[in-house]
Write a protein that binds this DNA or RNA. Structure first.
Lengths: 196, 196
DNA sequence: CACCGCTTATGACACTCGTCATAGTAGCGC
DNA sequence: GCGCTACTATGACGAGTGTCATAAGCGGTG
């Protein structure tokens, strides 16, 4: 897609996120990350002296920032902005990917949480920060769309929870049904909150 | 808790599920499973000639059956049976565990999906079957509670999606907030469907 | 006793892993 | 040229992995 413009460090963080969301953290090796990024193996200990944990944490952090930034772009792309439309756009990113490239990949933050929440507390905190970096702009967007202040935060949490779970079910069943079901069932609730 | 009555084979399957839901599949070793189950290492290749994949698949299958059976028990334990009450009971199982034992463990089926969906198709299919074994009794319970036939299945999918995602967020943030939020926000929607 | 299944025991193999130590190279200021 | 920094290259180490081969114990039945 893009040129190999970003430096090897950023490419390795990106590649780590890509591999983690496919295989999980434990099954992703550092040599594999370097190879996937087209980066020299010797650069690993240079850019990530904190070892694998640092690399994983930065990949999770990157994913959180990425998800947060997407919110604004989804909002801008909506013909008529509604909470349900925003949620549909978030889910469509996954249905589109699954339709185009298969069900190989999930959410890297979810993978890091599942694999590291109990063993590596720094990674767990990185995952929590990533979810916050995702939820905060989402809640702000809901508030902009007319959701009362007290409801925006919980509804943002609900949207992310449901989306993450639907991604999980979709991958397991190799079917985008759970994602479309989530949009269809949750949409009216979200729009009703915006009109209240 | 229980006596060591079940045979070594069942104990190993159970231990595998326990370890997988804490550490993920890749980080769980077979020797570790045998040790956790108090079973001899030599029994691994005897009871699970299919290797680690067979053990993981059976653990996932066990988890799916367990979740499905719990639905009936939750239903029986409700003072006044409603869809929101059922969902609250499902979530309470997790909030109670997290309050009592900490946020170390998640759902083993989710862990298997994240770690194996792209690499081991048999495990992915086992996870899909586990979700089905969970969703089918849940949808039947919703139908019993007055949810129209066409809505029971999608609502069951929505409940499982949201619960799985909320478990994920709760583990990452070490806070049961996402679980209680899910119950509070989704409850009215579920009960409204039962009255229609 | 022998015989025979079901289990268990144990050691080895061929990996892969993350990490480290050490050396090497490229580029730049001077 | 020198010196310095940033980056890369490469090999090794110890630990852990899943899997296999082989042999032993064990509790019955004939």
């Amino acid at each position: 897609m893009t040129e190999a413009r970003p430096g090897p460090r950023e490419r390795m963080v990106f590649s780590a996120a890509q591999l983690i969301r496919r295989q999980g953290v434990a099954a992703t090796g550092m040599r594999e990350v370097a190879a996937h990024a087209g980066a020299p193996r010797g650069s690993l200990q240079h850019y990530f002296p904190g070892g694998k944990e640092q690399l994983v944490n930065e990949a999770v952090q990157w994913a959180g920032r990425y998800a947060g930034k997407r919110i604004a772009r989804f909002l801008a792309g909506l013909d008529e902005p509604t909470p349900s439309g925003l949620f549909a756009a978030m889910a469509a990113q996954w249905t589109d990917e699954y339709a185009a490239d298969g069900f190989a990949a999930g959410c890297p933050v979810a993978a890091a949480t599942v694999d590291c929440a109990a063993s590596a507390d720094a990674t767990r905190r990185a995952a929590a920060a990533a979810f916050t970096a995702w939820r905060a702009p989402l809640a702000a967007a809901l508030a902009d769309l007319g959701v009362p202040p007290g409801r925006a935060e919980p509804l943002a949490t609900l949207m992310i929870s449901t989306l993450e779970g639907a991604i999980l079910l979709a991958r397991a069943e190799r079917d985008t049904g759970p994602l479309t079901t989530a949009v269809r069932e949750l949409g009216p609730l979200l729009d009703a909150a915006a009109r209240s």
